[in-house]
């Protein structure tokens, strides 16, 4: 396959940045998107040019590090797929591909496609935990949890914190991320103790970090590589209202 890439290049946080066009020649359709970028970078390095900086870690779709908007969609057009698991067979030969970083005030660009997502860590630190007993290991299943509650919590816990929801949101709101983190604990007995403080603190941290407000566009749900549902946003709103009772 031969492709034309238009990649966002930005030397540093203060640089203005612009889209730069690169040819990607003889690309195997079995490559992942990041492997294709690796090959383009090899060529750039050989030419003595600065390679394209992009975030990645596990490349198995579970770490939430890769963060590129491909042709106007966070993680590209394949549903429920991170960009590291997006394969080149999903593109047509000769295609033009525009690659941009997540754009949000809370995610300052560090270089090229790399953004600083530590704002999400701040939101987690504000309340994304449960207190537990120290001492002996409790028996497994000593606390019975109905299957549908466990499933609900696990579905919320599927969030890998990649930030695609924020990148997709017209308001750069982190509501889907925060709601998933609030919901995974809110429904479990272990999460009840801190439920009130958690929802208030995490929501406050979300706004303090410069994320926008949710106006229910639901772009986040469509962009999420883990299919996190906006029902968790309703759960967060419920938890928020409950915290005042």
């Amino acid at each position: 396959m031969n492709l034309t890439l238009h990649v966002w290049r930005q030397k540093g946080p203060q640089d203005k940045g612009k889209l730069v066009t690169y040819p990607a020649k003889d690309v195997s359709s079995d490559m992942s998107f990041l492997e294709m970028l690796d090959e383009v970078n090899d060529k750039l390095i050989k030419e003595g040019k600065d390679p394209i900086a992009f975030d990645h870690d596990c490349r198995e779709g579970i770490c939430g590090m890769c963060s590129s908007v491909v042709n106007g969609r966070p993680h590209g057009h394949q549903e429920k797929t991170t960009v590291c698991q997006l394969h080149m067979r999903q593109f047509e030969d000769g295609a033009d591909i525009v690659v941009e970083p997540w754009l949000a005030k809370a995610f300052p660009i560090q270089k090229d496609l790399i953004v600083d997502r530590s704002a999400l860590d701040v939101v987690m630190q504000a309340g994304g935990y449960t207190s537990c007993h120290t001492g002996g290991v409790p028996d497994a299943n000593s606390q019975l949890i109905p299957k549908e509650i466990a499933d609900f919590s696990m579905d919320a816990a599927e969030c890998i914190g990649c930030g695609a929801c924020i990148a997709a949101c017209p308001n750069s709101s982190a509501m889907l991320f925060t709601s998933a983190k609030v919901s995974q604990f809110a429904v479990l007995p272990q999460g009840k103790a801190e439920a009130k403080v958690r929802v208030l603190e995490m929501t406050k941290a979300m706004l303090d970090e410069g994320f926008g407000n949710c106006t229910n566009h639901y772009e986040c749900q469509e962009a999420c590589p883990k299919g996190i549902n906006v029902k968790f946003i309703a759960t967060l709103n419920r938890e928020y209202l409950k915290s005042f009772i």
Partner: peptide, 9 residues
């Protein structure tokens, strides 16, 4: 974004 697809809104 240079290109932004509307997904659900």
């Amino acid at each position: 974004y240079a290109i932004k697809k509307r997904l659900k809104t």
